[in-house]
Simulated assay, not measured.
Amino acid sequence: MDERLSFHEPKVVNGVCVVEPPDDVFELGVKEWSNALVGYFVGKRIPFKVVKEHLEKKWKKWGGVSVITGDNITFLFKFDNSAARDLVLSNGPWEVWGAYLALRQWEEGMSLSKDSFSSILVWVKFYNVPAELWTKPALSYVANALGVPLCIDAATTSGNCLSFSRVCILR
């Protein structure tokens, strides 16, 4: 593998070195990370090795994933394809050692720190939902009490199990 870098004459403005790579360099980087998720564990620090072993095992059925540590609090999950990334996002919630994993899709220019999470997706189980409220519009109203309702899971949609409903909300 060729690890050599190329030299580009730096631009100096008022005595300060300014880095201005061309658009194609940015586009290459965006393509490289476009199938990545950024996450952190709510309320608990989980060792990198444990996160890597648990989640690679859980997610490998959808494709390859690389687990990368960010700042010892955040993790990057780099997937082989967008389908695997989307399946992980839509099949949560995910937990390791009893700690909930907050996930969001990587975006160009985002900070890789926990502070970049101004909101998170949360799967919520609602118990004792009356049968007359077991509709998408009614569950939307119920979920509004906790956040912005986004979707319900397949079991809730089918209505085959009325012991609880599962709703994904933006919090």
Rank of each mutant, 00 (worst) to 15 (best):
V18K: 13
E20V: 05
E20L: 10
P21H: 04
P22T: 02
D24G: 06
F26Y: 14
F26S: 12
E27Q: 15
G29P: 09
V30C: 11
E32Q: 10
E32F: 08
E32C: 07
W33I: 11
S34K: 12
N35R: 11
N35C: 15
V38L: 15
Y40T: 06
Y40D: 01
Y40P: 04
F41M: 08
F41L: 12
V42Y: 13
V42F: 09
G43H: 13
K44N: 03
I46N: 03
F48P: 00
F48G: 02
F48M: 04
K49C: 07
V50W: 07
V51W: 00
K52H: 13
E53G: 09
H54S: 15
L55M: 12
L55H: 02
L55D: 00
E56M: 14
E56V: 10
K58E: 15
K58Y: 13
K58G: 02
W59C: 01
W59M: 06
W59A: 00
W59H: 03
K61W: 11
W62P: 10
G64P: 10
S66R: 09
V67Q: 04
I68W: 04
D71C: 10
D71G: 13
I73T: 14
I73M: 10
I73W: 06
T74W: 03
F75Q: 07
F75G: 01
F75V: 04
L76D: 01
L76R: 06
L76P: 00
F77L: 06
F79N: 01
F79M: 06
F79Y: 02
D80A: 12
N81V: 10
S82C: 11
S82Y: 12
A83P: 08
A83Q: 14
A84K: 05
R85S: 01
R85K: 14
L87W: 02
L87D: 03
L87I: 07
L87F: 02
V88A: 00
V88L: 04
L89S: 00
L89A: 02
S90R: 03
N91P: 06
G92W: 01
E95T: 08
E95L: 10
W97Q: 15
W97P: 01
G98A: 05
G98D: 04
A99N: 04
Y100I: 09
A102D: 08
L103H: 02
L103M: 02
Q105R: 15
W106A: 10
G109M: 05
G109I: 12
M110Q: 15
S111P: 08
L112M: 12
S113M: 14
K114V: 15
D115P: 05
S116P: 07
F117P: 08
S118G: 15
I120E: 09
I120H: 07
V122R: 09
W123K: 00
V124I: 13
V124K: 04
K125H: 10
K125L: 12
F126T: 00
F126L: 13
F126D: 00
N128T: 07
N128M: 13
N128R: 14
V129Y: 03
T135F: 01
K136F: 05
A138D: 08
L139K: 01
L139H: 02
S140D: 12
S140L: 05
S140W: 02
Y141W: 11
V142F: 00
V142C: 08
A145H: 11
A145V: 08
A145R: 10
L146P: 05
V148T: 13
V148C: 12
V148S: 11
P149Y: 04
P149E: 05
C151P: 03
I152Q: 03
I152R: 04
I152C: 08
I152M: 14
D153S: 00
